[in-house]
Every structure is written in C-alpha cells, then in structure tokens.
Nucleic acid binder design. Structure first.
Lengths: 251, 251
DNA sequence: CGCGATTTTGATCAATGTCAAAGGTGGTGG
DNA sequence: CCACCACCTTTGACATTGATCAAAATCGCG
C-alpha cells in the first residue's frame, strides 16, 4: 500500500556490525560488552511497509531500536483527526513512555519496509539498574526527543503554512540525507504522501499541495513521487526560519 | 509587572521537609540518604515574578528544581513570534537539555514569585554516575515531559481554537489544583494573561479573548484577573476532547 | 490495461488574523 | 487616599489564510 525505499531493509549480522550501535541505548556498551545486548535482545524483525509497529491505546510488551527504514508516530483523536508527532529514522529507540505498562500514548506505523531490533519491555528497567550507562544514555535520548517535539511545536504554533512546510522539508532533508546519502546531494528519498505532511503540520493535504506548488514555482524545491529535491537551501532556510545552530542539537 | 500568587513562595527548611522531594530527581534518595542532595545542591533561591530564570540562546551553569510558583518555557523566533512550550508547576526539573554545555534551546520566565532549588550543572553527570537511581528517575521525568509536549502538539495541530482553548484550560485547571488546592474546587489561581494563552496555543490574544467569551456565555467557565473558574467540567471535556485516561499518564 | 491511491486544480466558505480604539485593573508615588 | 500609569481586556470592522467540496488528472502496481 504505501511507498517503499529502493533498498530493502538491512539487518546487521550481530551487534558489532550494527550501524546504529552508537545512536541508541546500545551506545552504553563497549565493543567487548556487546554480548550483554545480544543476550538481552529478543531478536531482529523485518516488517513490510504499512505495518503497525504498535497501536495507540494498547499496552505492548516490547521496545524497539529502529535499524532501517522510516516509521511515523501519531495520535488519532475521536474526531478522526490525526496528528503526526514525529518521523522516525534509523537509530531511534521506540516505545519507551512514562508508564511502561500502560496503554501506548501514540501509535507507530512503518512508512517503508523496516528492520527493528526488539527488546523485552518488562526487563528493561532491570537492565538499566544493572547497567547505569543505559539509563544515562536513555536520558540523552529522551532529552533530545523532547527538544525535537518542542521544535515541532514551535513550527506549528508560530509559522504560516508556507514557512511551516519549508521548515519541515528542510529538516527532513537534513535528517534523511544523514542516513540515506544520495548521489546528488540535493535529492533525497522521502517516503511520505502529502497527507502525511499535512497531518504533521496541522494543515489539509489540499493546502499543502498548493503551498508545495508555490515553492516549486519559486524554484526552491521539487517534491514528487517520494523524491525531495532541494534546489535552493539557503532561500528555503530563510523562508522557514531554520536556525542551523538549533538544529545541530536535535540530531 | 506580572501577576503574582496570593501566597509568597515557600522554601523548605531542608530536603526532608521538601514538598516536591517525591516528584523530581531527588526521589532517587531515601530519607536517610538526603544528605547527598544537600551536599550536592548549590542552594535555594527566591525570584520575583517577571524574572528570567534562563535565556534562550545562552549557556547556563545550573539546573533547577521548581519548589514553588509558576514558570513558563518559551522560544522566540527572529520574526518576533513567541511559542510557549510549557507552563511549569512545582516539582519540575528545569534546564536539562541534550547538550548540557550548549546554548539553551528555550528560555524560562517566572510568572509568579518563585522558589527554586539550584544544582550545579557541570557535576550533574557525575552525580548520575555515582547514583544511577538519579538517572533512572530523570528518564521517567524526560519521558513524561516528552509525552506532555506531544499532547500539546496534538492540541495545536488538530483542534480548532475553541476546543484548543477548552483543552488547555481544563488541563491547567487539573494540574494547578493539584499543587494549589482552593476552597472552591472549581476555582483555581492561574497567573496567566490572555497573551500567554494565545502564545501557547498558536492563536492571537484577540481571538483567545473572543473564544473565552463564547465559553463564558455558554456557562462553561469564567477567567478573570488570574482566576479560572470551571463551571461545567464535563461539557468542557467534551468540547476539548480531553481524555482522562491519557491525562493520567501526563501528571 | 485498469484500479486504487494520490495529486492537482478551481470555486466557495469559514475561521482566524490584523488594526484600531475604548474600557478595566492593579500598582505606585505623591 | 487619590490619581495616574502601564498593562491587560474587550469590542468592532475588515482582511487574509486556510478549510471544504468536488472533479479531473496522474501515478504505481498488478
């Protein structure tokens, strides 16, 4: 149903070869301690695009490291409206929330084929107790996630639709390029529909479409078939009020 | 300049008598271990309403437990627009961000006279190393802060102005009542201007004013001179789509 | 080739912002 | 104790943004 990346999702042979080892909680372990993680983890899993990783409102029994692919976190209201909270790229640690045993506060969907590394949820607190470095790293991760949420909040709360869109696309461009570098630096694979963008920004997809057109007509970018092509990053950053100094703390 | 609570801010005589001991990182210590905190902390401080606790863009050297009073966290864009990220009540732990040494990603202002307990910033990581329980609790705190930011994001992104306003006021009513209970359960002291509310919700204060009027005229609430009086919580919750189950994980 | 999902466009409408001015309110200093 | 002042609230007229509705065009996939 949804789009997929050109590349199939990759699962590393072991934790030593894991490409995201340094960006998630596993960072807590030195190379020679990685057996702790390998003993702890439940296993790896490959999920096709469109899969629900976990559902809002349901308790779950796992935690996830995103190894490859793109996931979206969202909340759905009784009114039927959807708010996309975050687009998640490899290296993220998913599913940790204040009440580990409570119903999930948000849902997670795979936008592409995805590879995850699965941890058991119930024994994670004891892992943190046995290995305080894990807790320390999780603090950093959560602090950064919070900062990203604040950034997103600021984008929606203070900017008009055109600026809002420019800001989001630039940000995604920077983040995706980091994990999925491409031949042409300006072009990046972005597996989103205009509907996703609209629900992330609190706009309608019709309006997003119209704003995309103005940006295209101004020669700033092109976004078609899941390909985002940034033509004039500088002018876009001005329009979207993107501050590179702030951004650097977020990724 | 700004409003103040009727009561002056209170500083506890020692950590044992600290009213927020259980809601912040200090929770990591048993009663008889509290001397660790007392040795670690820099001291307490009382700040008059209107004070800037720390400024966006500037590095700082401290961390704060909010003991008493109300603080607001915000970001200000070059365009001059302000986004209020969160209204902070006693028990919060303030100033921790991904890059502890970097410039603050947001600013913090005192809405009322405030009492804070000050920690040194540079030695906090070593405190976490020596006392892993601190890190564990900070994980919970940050996870909850993130969930709150997601909630706020959802409010701004998915609801029309009237519902947005109803949602925020109900939420604040619940939170403030918890720390500052009043004789009449429906009335609560809320030291905000309509400008604050507008900047929290991504609306103009003029529009907030008009929506407040409709809520008042419908007999749902009254908000005047920093007093919020909820007259019909049930109907308000319906309008603001407030889900009590979700809320419970957030406070 | 045909189908479902997505994108694109135009016409119209509703929600929210902007501007401007008048009325309140509490705090301060004479 | 009064009067003034700064800040906040309230209101109305009008402008603009973004939503809604509907239909056609396009795309990816089987």
């Amino acid at each position: 149903m949804p789009r997929r990346f050109k590349y199939p999702p990759a699962v590393p042979p072991d934790c030593q070869g894991c490409p995201i080892r340094k960006s998630t909680v596993c960072r807590a372990f030195k190379l020679e301690e990685l057996n702790v993680v390998e003993d702890f983890k439940t296993g790896d899993r490959i999920l096709p695009a469109g899969t629900t990783l976990y559902q809002e409102g349901e308790p779950i029994t796992e935690l996830y490291n995103l190894l490859d692919g793109v996931v979206v976190l969202n909340r759905i209201l009784t009114s039927g409206r959807r708010q996309i909270l975050e687009f998640v790229l490899p290296g993220a640690f998913l599913g940790y929330q204040p009440d580990l045993k409570g119903p999930m506060l948000h849902g997670a969907q795979c936008l592409t084929d995805v590879a995850v590394c699965v941890f058991p949820r119930h024994s994670f607190p004891s892992l943190m107790r046995r290995h305080p470095e894990v807790a320390a790293h999780l603090v950093s991760i959560k602090a950064r996630d919070e900062a990203r949420a604040h950034n997103h909040l600021t984008n929606i709360g203070t900017r008009a639709s055109r600026a809002r869109l420019a800001h989001l696309l630039l940000e995604l461009h920077i983040r995706v390029r980091r994990w999925y570098p491409t031949a042409d630096d300006g072009i990046v694979e972005l597996p989103l529909t205009q509907d996703h963008i609209a629900d992330a920004l609190g706009l309608t997809s019709v309006h997003v479409n119209k704003m995309l057109r103005t940006l295209r007509e101004d020669g700033l970018l092109r976004f078609k078939n899941g390909q985002l092509n940034i033509l004039d990053a500088k002018r876009l950053a001005a329009i979207g009020e993107l501050d590179p100094d702030t951004v650097s703390q977020l990724y």
